[in-house]
Amino acid sequence: MDQHAAAGFLSVRDQPLEADQRGTGAPILYLHGEAGPDRDAPFLQLLTASGRVVAPSHPGFGNSPLSASITGIDDLTYFYLDMIEQMGWTDLSIVGVGLGAWIALELATSGTNRIGRLALIDAVGVKISDRTTRDIADIFALTDEQIADLAWADPALGLPALTTAPDQLLYDRARARETTARYAFTPYLHNPKLKRRLHRVRVPTLMLWGAQDRITLPAYGAAFAALIPGARFALIDDAGHYPQLEQPAVVARHVQDFLASSRS
C-alpha cells in the first residue's frame, strides 16, 4: 500500500501529518472522530461551499505517523495549537466530530484567540452522569455488529464487507481503534477537568447530535451543550453517532448556516 497516495501531507512541528485539503476561502479545520478519518466523505466536499477545508488525520490515525511526544489528548491539543499558529490562521472555524469535537473544546478553552467558532457533532470529552452510569458506550467491549447497531441509524452502513474492503479502510479502522485507546482509554473518552473549563469557550458554538445515537445519547449531548456558554443544540433525524456520514446534506446545511451567521 502506498500510504502517501490517498492525501497530501503537511509538516507540523517537523512531523508529517496526512491532511485532505480542498476548496478555497476562509479556513475550516475538520477534526475527525474516534472512528478515524472520514476519507473522501461527501460531507467534506459540501463543506467547501463555506471555505477551505483542511482535514488532518490525527497523529496515529489514517496514515499520519505516531509521535513519541504525543501520548494523550492534552499533547494533541498542543500539537494543534502549534499547527494553528504555524498556518497563521485567525478567525478559524473548527468542525469537530466525536473525539475531534473534544479536541476542539480543549483548543477553545486553552486561551488561543485564533478560533472564531465551533461546530461540534456528537462530541465526547466530558463526564455528565453519576459515577456508576457510563455516558459513552464502551467501544472496546463491543463487537463490530454491536457498535454498528448503536452508532448508526441504519446499522448496515456501519458494517462494510471487511474481507473484500480496500487495505486503506482496514488499516484506518485498526489504527483508529488502537490510537483512540492510546489517547483516551482511561479516563474513558473524556477529560475529568474539561467540564469545569467549558465556561472559557467564548466563541459561537453549534452542537449537532444524531437523534438515533446510542454511543452517546442525545440527552448526554443536550447536557453537554448546556455547559458551553450560548451553545445551540440541534438534533439530526435519521442519524446515529456519525450524522456527517449518514445525513451529509442536512448536517452540511446546518454547519454552513451557522458559519455564515457567526461570521457576519
Binding site: 472496546f140 467491549a141 471487511l162 474481507t163 488499516y171 479502522r173 485498526a174 483512540t180 492510546r182
Partner: peptide, 20 residues
C-alpha cells in the same frame, strides 16, 4: 470476543490480517 482483542495488545498489522 472484544475482550480477547484489547486495543494495542495485537499489532495494527495483525488486526488488519484478522479483519481480512
Amino acid at each position: 470476543p472484544p475482550f480477547a482483542n484489547p486495543p494495542g495488545f495485537f499489532s495494527v498489522e495483525a488486526n488488519v490480517e484478522l479483519m481480512r
